[in-house]
Amino acid sequence: MLVLTRKPGESIRIGEDISIRVIGVQRRQVRFAIDAPREIPVHREEIYELIQKENREAATSTTELDPTPIWKRGNEGVTK
């Protein structure tokens, strides 16, 4: 793992076209400005992990499921 030290206003470049600049440091928070091509998704790590987990749960929780009765039951008490 590479560890670097940067000051506010300084950047890190990853490959040809990803640039991460430190734009502010306040107490225990750091703000970054990230420039990346649109095919490179950029997310907060915990959000990405949350979606990863929920996607896996979506697939596995419905593998054996017949959703028809759940939908029909819901239809009996439709929202007016």
Binding site: I47, L50, I51, A58, S61, T62, P67, I70, W71
Partner: peptide, 16 residues
Amino acid sequence: ALLTSQDGELFANLVA
């Protein structure tokens, strides 16, 4: 929306 089944109900992921 992708649906998850939990306790006999369906839930929709509205974040993603």
